[in-house]
């Protein structure tokens, strides 16, 4: 009797453990958050309203937040469970998705890393001309 009860409880615990791993509201939650924060960082880089100092402070804060977000995404096992285009694209282009960590490999900030990835260099800025498109 006792063994039966024990067996039953062991099985239900096993099922609970297995199920708790699969129950997730949104498997792409962390990646979507990262994309949102990355977009906010790029918006701050391109922000022309703020002063240089204000922009610098905002970028520093964003970079710090991105560190955590990038680590969360890289450690997230649930992403593989959803063969989404978003996940595929994120891992296809590590240098553009994980700006802080990819930039650190070349001693660059997240901003420098993004600018380098989209081919915006000092030279291209200096040689550019203002005009109508």
């Amino acid at each position: 009797m006792l063994t039966k009860k024990l067996n039953k409880s062991a099985l239900s615990i096993c099922l609970f453990v297995v199920c708790s791993q699969t129950i997730a509201a949104d498997n792409l939650f962390t990646l979507k958050n990262l994309e949102r924060e990355r977009a906010a960082l790029i918006a701050d880089i391109l922000d022309t309203q703020s002063s240089a100092e204000q922009r610098q402070n905002k970028l520093k804060l964003k970079q710090r937040q991105l560190v955590d977000m990038e680590r969360m995404v890289l450690r997230d096992e649930r992403l593989l469970a959803s063969p989404s285009r978003l996940v595929k694209q994120a891992f296809d282009d590590y240098d553009l998705t994980f700006l802080v960590h990819a930039g650190a490999e070349k001693n660059r900030s997240a901003t420098e890393q993004w600018l380098e990835q989209v081919n915006v260099t000092n030279l291209s800025i200096m040689t550019s001309k203002a005009g109508y498109r």
Binding site: E70, R71, L74, R75, L79, L80, P83, V87, K88, F91, D92, Y94, F98, H101, A102, A104, E105
Partner: peptide, 15 residues
Amino acid sequence: LQQQQEKARQRMQSV
């Protein structure tokens, strides 16, 4: 995708 994720983790770990 699994291999890419593993490589990405290694890159993150190195920095």
